[in-house]
């Protein structure tokens, strides 16, 4: 399992719109490596005959009928928002897009 490099952390930080200091990059690279190492132990157990899976249960086609269920009220929906305006979620200026 290749380790997580400082460059990869910088790339992830940019994707996540996070500004990290130089020492933070090193710090998180180390932490992420520890996590990946821990999880990588699973692959020691998984043999060739165990296919990768994305879900623990062997289910398919779990669906619901196309029937409307009650939504939240706008007040409920906005209750947890840090800021709201005109019954909408208010977010800070969006940068780096157009």
């Amino acid at each position: 399992m290749p380790g997580i490099t400082r460059e990869e952390v910088a790339h992830l930080a940019r994707l996540s719109r996070l500004e990290l200091k130089a020492e933070e990059l090193d710090h998180f690279a180390e932490q992420l490596n520890d996590i990946v190492d821990a999880v990588a132990r699973v692959s020691e157990i998984a043999a060739e005959d165990v296919p990768p899976t994305s879900h623990p249960l062997p289910l398919t086609n779990v669906m619901r009928p196309d029937v409307v269920r009650p939504s939240l009220t706008p007040a409920e929906a906005l209750a947890g928002a840090p800021a709201a305006e005109e019954q909408r979620f208010r977010v800070p200026q969006i940068l780096g897009e157009d």
């Binding site: 619901r64 029937v67 409307v68 269920r69 009650p70 939504s71 939240l72 009220t73 706008p74 929906a77 906005l78 005109e86 019954q87 909408r88 979620f89």
Partner: peptide
């Protein structure tokens, strides 16, 4: 199960899942 009807009041057709 939120409705898809057009023209509803802002944030009146939302629930924990789609939020």
């Amino acid at each position: 199960g939120c409705s898809t009807e057009l023209g509803a009041e802002p944030n009146s057709q939302v629930c924990p899942t789609c939020l």
